[in-house]
Amino acid sequence: MSLSPTPTSSSAAIPAPTDRDHDARFGREVLPLAGEIHRFALALCGSDVAAQRLVADTLRRAYRLSLGPCPSQAGVVGTPMEEQARRLLTLCRELFSESGDSYSEPGNADAGHDLGADILGTGRVFATTLREGLDQPWVGARNVEALMAELPARYRVPVVLVDVAGMHDAAAAQVLGVDEMELRARLFRGRRLLQERVLEARLMDPRTTRPLRHE
C-alpha cells in the first residue's frame, strides 16, 4: 500500500475532527464510486499507478469538501448518485488540470496524432468498411481497450465518458469544463482516431456475419 505524499496533501490544513456518522456516510456513498473515478482517471493519466494516486487525491479532496461549511454545495455527500459521480469526476479533472504533469505519463501529449481533416479521416474509414465488409461483429474488445489507451487524452477522455461510461453529452461537458460543441468535437475526433487504429489492427473477424438490420 502506498502512503506517499501527494500534490494536495502537504500544504492544506487538516480538517477538524468529524463525527462518525459523517464518516460512515462518506464511506457508504462515496467509496463505492472509486472504480468509476478510476476509469476516468485512467483515461486522463494513461497510467494505472498515476490513476490510482489521482483517485486517492480526488477522494481526499472530496472528503475535505464534505467537511466544509456547506457540504451539500460540494455535492459530495447527500446528493443523488449520478450527481455525486459527476461532481467527483469534475473534482478529479480539476485536480489533474491543476497538477501540471504530476499525473501524466510520458508521451501522452496531444500533438502528432491528428490525421488530417475530419472528412478525409471519416472517408478513409468509409472506404475501408466498403472494401472489407466491416458491417460485422466486433471482436477483441480487450485489444480495443489497448488501442484506446494509445489515443491522446484530449480525445480519449470524451470517448470514455460518453461511449464507454454512457454519460450524456451535457454531463460529460460539465465534467470536462467545456461546452457541448467542444465536447462533441473531441468525441468525434476520438472515435475516428480509434476507428482508424482498430481498422489498421484488423480487429474485425471476417469469418462471422450478422444479419443486416433494416430499420
Binding site: S2, F26, Q52, R53, A141, E145, G166
Partner: peptide, 28 residues
Amino acid sequence: LLGAMRAKPAASRELQDQVVAALIAEGW
C-alpha cells in the same frame, strides 16, 4: 462495442487500500 465495456468498474484491492490510507491521513 464501446458500450459493451460499460459495466460498472470495481475498485481493485490495491486501489481501495490506497484510497483508505489517503482518507485516514485526512482524519476520516
